[in-house]
Simulated assay, not measured.
Amino acid sequence: MTDIIVIGGGIAGISAAARLSEGANVTVLEGESALGYHASGRSAALFEENYGLAPVIALNKASAEYHQPYLSPRGFLLVARAGEDTQFEADAKTLKCPEISVDEARAHVPILNGLITRAAYHADAWDIDTDRMIQDFARTVRSNAGQVLTDRKVTEINRDKGWTVRCGNEVLTADLLVNAAGAWADQIATMAGVKPIGITPQRRSMARLPAPGGQAVDKWPIFFGVGETWYAKPDAGKLLVSPADEDAVEPHDAWADDMVLAEGLDRYAQHVTEPVTRVETTWAGLRSFAPDRCLVLGRDPQVTDFIWCAGQGGYGFQTAPAASQLLADIVLGHAPQLDAATINSLSPARF
């Protein structure tokens, strides 16, 4: 018998398991053959401290120091066309992104076309080495005598003086159960006899394009249109472009919607000089949100040995260090480092 079973081996589950393993015996169950297969493995992998609602930003700020070894410079550029001034000013204010000239914007991204009328930029946005972060958290679990088990799809959960979790013919037991199942979080709750919260998976599609005009793109920032209706991000000499879609779907191994992707690529193309002539690959991931779009961290108010670690949305990696520490503090009875208002805004008891 283990002390704690964590269901889910994405960044949410493996980081929570690493923190919990400092004070308990932990077993992680991941249904796929590798950690971070679904949402975590398809992340834009950006640390932007000012991205998200207030509780998310609080987690971002509390995570900043931990992230340092995993970060490399990227930068953030917001662009707008004529008639988009109101949305541009709102976005720039929210993201604390100072306005720059259009010429300065083109110095960052040379393919911006003549329709761009305003731009805002700041350097404090960073690429995250997501695979290294996941593997380091997994090493922490193992070094603390915990287990990280892949190919363990949960098929049954029962509660009677502790938890019994069945993965096919394999049965594991534990005192506490952590639900870090991402898009499947409500399904796991239902299986465990716990009231679902309303975690909704939303598809985010992505296309990889050749470097526009054969240019060297690696030093370009990530760049967005106003209202986050598309974004483009350099990646290994190519350009990733997303329509920033958020279509509610059932939990599944996601794939890109061709029409949604085409519309997003068209929005991107309206801002640049280089037409989209070839798409190399496409894919999609599921970003799962609670009804208020904030993370859900802590003990279920009715079933207190069932721990929620869900609703990461698009903030999983950038919040993981602080979110996992908060969860461990709650479960292990330590004094949390975050303020009470933030903790309450992340608690499952708010629903």
Rank of each mutant, 00 (worst) to 15 (best):
A17M: 00
E22I: 03
A24K: 06
T27S: 14
L29S: 11
S33M: 05
A34L: 09
L35P: 12
L35M: 08
G36V: 13
H38E: 14
N50V: 00
N50H: 02
L53K: 13
P55S: 01
V56P: 10
V56S: 11
I57Y: 02
Q68W: 07
Y70M: 08
S72I: 01
R74H: 07
L77D: 04
G83P: 09
G83M: 09
E84S: 12
L95C: 10
C97V: 02
A105R: 08
V109L: 14
H122C: 07
D124A: 09
R132P: 01
M133L: 13
D136L: 06
N144R: 13
Q147N: 12
L149I: 15
K153M: 14
V154L: 02
I157C: 06
N158T: 10
C167L: 06
T173I: 01
A180Q: 13
I199L: 15
R204C: 10
M206R: 10
P210G: 15
A216E: 14
W220D: 04
I222S: 00
F223W: 03
D235N: 13
A236G: 05
A254C: 01
W255Y: 11
A256C: 03
M259K: 14
D266Y: 14
D266C: 08
T273M: 09
A284P: 04
F289Q: 02
D292C: 13
L295Y: 15
D300W: 15
G313S: 08
F317H: 01
Q318S: 08
A320G: 05
Q325M: 08
D329V: 13
P336G: 12
L338K: 10
N344H: 04
P348H: 09
R350M: 02
R350E: 03
